[in-house]
């Protein structure tokens, strides 16, 4: 009887307390949102307070000097990291990365120690770490290098490893020839229509100011001159010749038009053509059709 009474009392008390205070919020999501707010407020407070105690202690001043020196080094780091990108690939970037990794954490560790127990700062500092872009670039570079290495190794390893049988050797040689051929084809295949149009436009706009037409010449609008040119990798014309000269040479008007077109392509004032050197295989040999009919409204 007592036990049942006591149970009922307990239950009633619980019901009353729940009705007064309510049920506890077990899934209180706002708690997570509060955390970063707290962290930020504390971190700002510490930063602003830091300079004041530093002035009093000589030992701290020395530390600060050291910190400044380190900070300066840290500041300078991004500058040299820019230089090696186009020039040296590995040696300089690796050394820089080591410096940044070693020195930047030290600074922050020392700061933490001096600040005595503000552990939340540790959560702030990592966010600043990914600032230097160099490591990311070097990763790309390394990937490209590795990719090249892998492709080369794949081609050459197979015959070396399978030297034992003649058949496999022959297959390897065929594969090698095909591989070499496929690499050149793949380079040309990479040129898209837009890239092709860009190349054509570059050459066209470059030559246009140097093609000196003679609109008053008899039948000038109907004379089409085909000039072939061989370009150097820096976009200059090494050699140019009129491809349809035989058709034009007997008529003085046509011959003059042919030579005018040839002079247009040979004129150094309109060179070099600013073309992508990686696509040299595409624009090395150029055929130019000089057709003035558009200028005469045809």
């Amino acid at each position: 009887m007592r036990s049942t009474l006591s149970i009922s009392i307990v239950i009633h008390v619980l019901v009353i307390t729940i009705s007064i205070f309510g049920l506890p919020f077990l899934y209180k999501a706002p708690a997570k949102q509060q955390k970063p707010m707290v962290v930020e407020v504390v971190s700002i407070g510490n930063k602003t307070e830091l300079p004041k105690p530093a002035k009093k202690d000589t030992s701290k001043q020395v530390k600060e000097k050291k910190e400044n020196i380190i900070k300066k080094k840290v500041k300078k780091l991004p500058q040299p990291s820019i230089k090696p990108i186009p020039q040296n690939k590995r040696t300089e970037t690796v050394s820089l990365r080591k410096k940044t990794k070693k020195k930047t954490p030290k600074v922050k560790q020392k700061k933490l120690k001096s600040k005595t127990g503000f552990t939340k700062l540790a959560r702030v500092t990592p966010r600043r770490k990914p600032k230097p872009p160099d490591p990311f670039e070097s990763v790309l570079r390394n990937l490209a290098q590795d990719f090249d290495k892998k492709t080369v190794k794949k081609v050459y390893k197979t015959p070396k490893e399978d030297k034992k049988s003649k058949k496999s050797d022959f297959e390897a040689k065929i594969a090698k020839i095909l591989a070499n051929n496929s690499t050149t084809e793949s380079e040309t295949d990479k040129v898209t229509m837009t890239e092709m149009d860009a190349m054509i436009n570059t050459i066209r706009t470059s030559i246009r100011p140097c093609w000196n037409l003679q609109p008053g010449a008899k039948g000038a609008e109907d004379i089409v001159v085909v000039v072939r040119a061989y370009l150097t990798p820096d976009g200059r014309v090494k050699r140019a010749w009129v491809a349809n000269r035989d058709l034009l040479v007997n008529d003085p008007f046509k011959l003059a038009a042919a030579e005018t077109a040839q002079r247009a392509i040979l004129n150094e004032a309109c060179q070099p053509f600013r073309l992508d050197p990686r696509k040299y295989a595409i624009w090395r040999d150029v055929t130019l059709n000089f057709n003035p009919s558009e200028m005469f409204g045809k």
Binding site: M199, R204, I207, W211, L213, I282, S293
Partner: peptide, 18 residues
């Protein structure tokens, strides 16, 4: 694998003294 040449049509020029 012989590649096709790049063909460019030049349809406009200038009229200047030589």
């Amino acid at each position: 694998s012989a590649k096709a040449e790049l063909k460019v049509d030049i349809t406009r020029g200038t009229v200047k003294a030589l």
